[in-house]
Design a protein around this nucleic acid. Structure first.
Ligand SMILES: NC(=O)c1ccc[n+]([C@@H]2O[C@H](COP(=O)([O-])OP(=O)(O)OC[C@H]3O[C@@H](n4cnc5c(N)ncnc54)[C@H](O)[C@@H]3O)[C@@H](O)[C@H]2O)c1
Ligand SMILES: NC(=O)c1ccc[n+]([C@@H]2O[C@H](COP(=O)([O-])OP(=O)(O)OC[C@H]3O[C@@H](n4cnc5c(N)ncnc54)[C@H](O)[C@@H]3O)[C@@H](O)[C@H]2O)c1
Lengths: 217, 217
DNA sequence: TATACATTGTTAAAAAATTCACTATGCACC
DNA sequence: GGTGCATAGTGAATTTTTTAACAATGTATA
């Protein structure tokens, strides 16, 4: 298998690859062994060329005239994305959302292991959720250094997100996923990703309105 | 103010407008009255032209030589997106994530009011969370019709998402936000949006790996 | 072994999105 | 009222992403 071409890979490609992995897993469970780009595209809601193109950034994984072997393709994609390993993750802010994420099974299944959780609320410190004991945020930087944690999840209120980020950065973290609806600043070498599903609600609301307007025309 | 031009609006624009609203709110709280596209761009992490272009889809909201009045712009964007009203929302699947969302304050603040929640687990039916009583899913279609609900949120396990969607569709819903990691099929006139933050973790992991590879070169 | 067939990998074309560069215009100050 | 300045709005240029088209190639079959 050839190495990843040195070419910038579109963000959108990464997101789609994640979807492909998802759907391939479902197919695997259904006992499907081989799949064509066309069928996979169909179930992922994208164009077949798109799939082939996305995969081409990383190598050749298919067999012409046949398609892709489901298991192999899934493994190949995971490897391409750097997911053929586990990533240690810490969480800052154990509120409603933080708890839900701590209890979420799929994270571990996908290779993201939450190894520690931090909060600044004395009432929450010491509590155990899904086998993780909540610790005082002040311990964060040292802990992440000690445990070699690479990814931090922020689930504090928005006005505390920057502070949480600072702790993480101090702790030598390499990437942050921020669930709080606020922008944070971090050094260049720290990867920051924002999650905000209000966007999706906005989008749905907007599209419903548009549909209705179009309906009137 | 002129009407929205009849032109297809990029999905990405909608997502960015949501970010602008967010940042404008923060600025408003800080007492900032006027903002230039350049400064707003800076705090939203985008290009100033991008902001002006995004806004141009909907009208002219600024004052040349001055900038945008923060309050007015925020209102204008919300109106453009169809968010100058409240939207009734129902939730299907009251597990870890469903609970977190029910307790989430920001949804209501942004105009999305969860008016009912449904689950199929008899142990959960009757429970009250954040003032909402969990009802049996079988009541869903009739309830949504009766209450004139337009948006449904799916937070069931992935293998149940399609069933949940079917209930919603039967209930005459116009848009669905699916938090379960599985594709669903719905009629053309129903807007479907997928939320999956595993994508963001994938993306962070991938980018960390890339950074490291680049570092070695 | 040759032939037909299916489906990939890849190149080219098209479409979409972003950024740039400039024009128009409102405000402040003289 | 005129002048200078700042910044929005906009059309053109650029870049990126998606889609289409097709050549390359592995498999099955006779
Ligand atoms: N609840 C949801 O479903 C939901 C959905 C989308 C986004 N969000 C966002 O996620 C964030 C968390 O939401 P939530 O509902 O869990 O809020 P929450 O108030 O329940 O939890 C926030 C937690 O962060 C802790 N905290 C505050 N400052 C901290 C600090 N400096 N260090 C460590 N911990 C700190 C608090 O003690 C609290 O436990 C918010 O920004 C919210 O907007 C939540
Ligand atoms: N927990 C998280 O933080 C998190 C994060 C991202 C995505 N998700 C996804 O969100 C979904 C829910 O996650 P969760 O952790 O809350 O799971 P969960 O198991 O805690 O909750 C699922 C709920 O759905 C109910 N349910 C099942 N089938 C139903 C049906 N047909 N009609 C109505 N209700 C039904 C169950 O009774 C249960 O209460 C899953 O698909 C999960 O992958 C969860």
């Amino acid at each position: 298998m050839h190495l990843q071409k040195y070419e910038k890979i579109p963000r959108a490609t990464i997101a789609r690859l994640a979807v492909y992995v998802q759907e391939l897993e479902v197919m695997e469970q259904q006992g499907i062994k081989v799949i064509s780009s066309e069928k996979l595209a169909w179930s992922c809601g994208v164009n077949p060329s798109q799939i082939r193109k996305d995969l081409a950034y990383f190598g050749e994984f298919g067999v012409r005239g046949v398609g892709y072997y489901v298991y192999e393709l899934r493994e190949a994609i995971k490897q391409s994305l750097g997911l053929d390993r586990t990533w240690n993750v810490v969480m800052v802010g154990v509120g409603n959302l933080g708890r839900a994420l701590l209890r979420h099974q799929l994270l571990r299944k996908r290779g993201f292991v939450i190894v520690a959780a931090f909060d600044c609320d004395p009432f929450k410190i010491g509590e155990e959720i899904a086998g993780i004991e909540v610790q005082c945020s002040s311990k964060l930087p040292q802990s992440t250094i000690d445990m070699g944690v690479e990814i931090g999840i922020i689930t504090t209120p928005p006005e505390r997100a920057q502070r949480a980020a600072n702790y993480l950065i101090e702790g030598g973290i390499k990437g942050i996923v921020n669930f709080a609806p606020s922008r944070i600043t971090a050094p260049e070498n720290v990867v920051v990703e924002y999650v905000d599903f209000i966007h999706n609600l906005f989008s749905v609301a907007f599209n419903i309105t548009q549909h209705q307007i179009k309906g009137l025309l």
